[in-house]
Computed example of a mutant assay.
Amino acid sequence: MLGAVLAGGFLLALIAGLIIANSIQTRIEADHPPAGEFVEVDGTRLHMRQTGPSDREPILVLHGAASNMEEPFLALADTLKDEHVLWLDRPGLGWSDRPDAEWSPRAEAALITRLLDTLEIDRALVIGHSWGGAISMRLALDHPERISGLVLIAPALGAWIGDAAWFNKASFWPVIGPLFTRLLVPLTGKPQLRSGAVNAFHPEPVPEGYAETTSLALLLRKPNWLANARDMADVNRHLEQQEPHYHKVEHRTIFLAGKGDTVLWSHRHSGLTASRMKNAELRWIKGAGHNLHHHQQDAVAAAIADVRAG
């Protein structure tokens, strides 16, 4: 009898937790609605925003893991106000869908290239931050004719950077995975997002209202969480496949790396990669962290100008 009572109580608590978690996700979607336009590419709906004069060479901005286009937009919108900029929610993140197929940087680069086709854009200068840097390099490797140059901000490029965080792998465990993504992620995720932001900015300060302004909580939506978790769970395998080919990239490329970055070891990523490329330059920024584009906008603008000049 006692066992039945305990089991019934656990079931009721689980149901109540799932209801609360679902309401949290609904609230997140209401608080952070799509702010751009939707473009359908090969049956996949992508969310993006275009700003600036259309007669300039486009700049494509690719955000990093766990975020969306609002993250770099907050940092660089004013700096790039006179540029034609494509701010993209990378497939599976923000409000962009991801095809229901095995995913990889190669597949993502191919879909982004087809987006450029849809928008009738021949070439673009690409800015990639963190994991967006890995996608940028995949674009340069697979579709070099579509890229005019690269500005890579604290990019994640080197294989075997350590095991994926346990929660990324746990999201795909049988039985536990669905409960984790539907229950624990919405209920406990927001404090983790804030602590993650502090780590990403260290040693620089997190801008006031950063999490809210960048719609960071969209990561707690089930499809967003699973897309990002899959990317990060497979990160070493993806980078192992593309790292040996970086020397083939001939585009003018400028790497921006923070001396204080605690998210990744930039000597291993930006440093080693830049040394292997024919037309690359690494610019160290003292006192900067992983999200350096929020406090070092002048360095980003100078890199863009120098890539074009080069």
Rank of each mutant, 00 (worst) to 15 (best):
A280R: 10
E212P: 01
G258K: 01
H238W: 11
L226T: 09
A229F: 12
R230D: 15
A274Q: 07
G271V: 11
N236A: 07
W265H: 07
T253A: 07
A288S: 08
H251N: 02
I254D: 01
T214R: 01
L219A: 09
Y210V: 06
L226M: 11
A233D: 15
A233S: 15
N224D: 14
L220G: 11
R221C: 08
W284K: 06
D261C: 06
E212C: 00
L256A: 13
S275N: 09
P244Y: 12
H247L: 15
V263E: 08
A233H: 12
A274E: 12
A274C: 11
A288V: 13
D234G: 11
H251F: 03
G289K: 02
L264S: 06
N228F: 00
W225M: 14
K259Y: 00
W284N: 03
L282C: 04
N228L: 04
G289D: 07
M232S: 07
L216T: 12
A280M: 11
K248C: 05
H238T: 04
S270E: 11
T273Y: 00
E250W: 03
K278L: 07
L226H: 07
H247V: 15
H269E: 01
K222V: 14
G289A: 02
Y210H: 13
F255K: 01
A288G: 12
G258L: 05
N279A: 08
Y246K: 04
E212W: 00
W225L: 12
L256G: 06
A233P: 12
H238C: 05
H267R: 02
L220A: 05
A257F: 04
S275R: 10
R237A: 12
G271L: 05
L239S: 14
L216P: 01
R268M: 09
H269S: 00
